[in-house]
């Protein structure tokens, strides 16, 4: 009898067990990246860039080359890499503190130049690694280590909607927001990642995939409750969907 293996570790991923907290979405998104690159047969032609954040050790989980960048600077670092290695898929993997706070200048200008890279943006509305401080994407009223009275829009502004903002620029070819909170959304997220990598491979331009994620640890919730909270509170502020799709890839 032959058995078909239906679930295996993607080829471009290592055996290293994830160091993330139980239930954290980082591992899920890593896996989707691995599967997408495998299916597109790009696993040996890819260079990743991960700056600080809980995913600073992302390089441990992938077999391809990686650059560990300074906080916020990944799009600039990726620009440098892609200009030298245009035949490679170059992606960044950034948190919300990283991309939407300290690295705002770098992301906007990389997108505006139409760098042929893929930016994967993990929006968990918090600074995970440093212990739960307010992020630019923290919801209004949300209590964190540095917004103990709840985020006050008068003092700290409203959550930044990066996908919407980047979609206003000319150069990006694909800007989308997904989540991995349900099986259906997970499939959509994978499709979005594949679209982005494929577009990059074809040399089309800048691609951006925002993934709305949970941080059970710093939200002080179980993974289940966190996913519920994500659906109820986060998705209304960060609606899922594609904000820019110049080549109509979402429609197939």
């Amino acid at each position: 009898m032959t058995m078909e293996q239906v679930f295996a570790r993607p080829k471009c991923m290592t055996k290293t067990p994830f160091h993330y907290c139980p239930g954290c979405d980082h591992g899920v998104v890593h896996r989707l990246i691995g599967e997408s690159l495998d299916e597109l047969e790009l696993g040996d032609k890819t260079i990743g860039v991960a700056p600080v954040g809980c995913s600073v050790f992302a390089f441990d989980y992938f077999t391809f080359d990686f650059n560990q960048a300074a906080h916020g600077r990944a799009p600039a670092v990726a620009t440098g890499i892609k200009r030298v290695r245009p035949d490679h898929i170059v992606f960044t993997y950034q948190g919300d503190g990283d991309l939407a706070a300290i690295g705002t200048a770098e992301i906007i200008h990389a997108a505006n130049r139409g760098e042929k890279i893929t930016v994967i943006f993990i929006n968990n509305a918090i600074y995970g690694m440093t212990g739960g401080q307010m992020a630019p994407t923290t919801l209004v009223g949300m209590k964190t280590a540095t917004s103990p009275y709840g985020r006050d829009a008068q003092l700290c502004g409203n959550p930044i909607k990066m996908a919407e903002m980047l979609a206003t620029l000319e150069a990006p070819v694909y800007v989308t927001r997904v989540s991995v909170n349900t099986p259906a959304n997970l499939m959509k997220a994978k499709k979005a990642l594949k679209n982005a990598f494929r577009l990059q491979k074809e040399g089309k331009g800048f691609t951006f995939v925002e993934v709305v994620c949970i941080c059970p640890t710093n939200w002080g919730k179980t993974p289940n409750d966190a996913h519920k909270w994500l659906a109820e509170k986060m998705l209304p502020v960060f609606p899922l969907g594609t904000y820019k799709d110049v080549l109509g890839v979402d429609k197939g």
Binding site: T130, A145, S147
Partner: peptide, 27 residues
Amino acid sequence: PITPQSEIPAYLSRRLPEVEGVFLQAE
């Protein structure tokens, strides 16, 4: 935010509003 000084901003985010001061987490 950055470790290992996170208690300073965490403390002042509570304390400064009590004395009508300004605590602001920059980008």
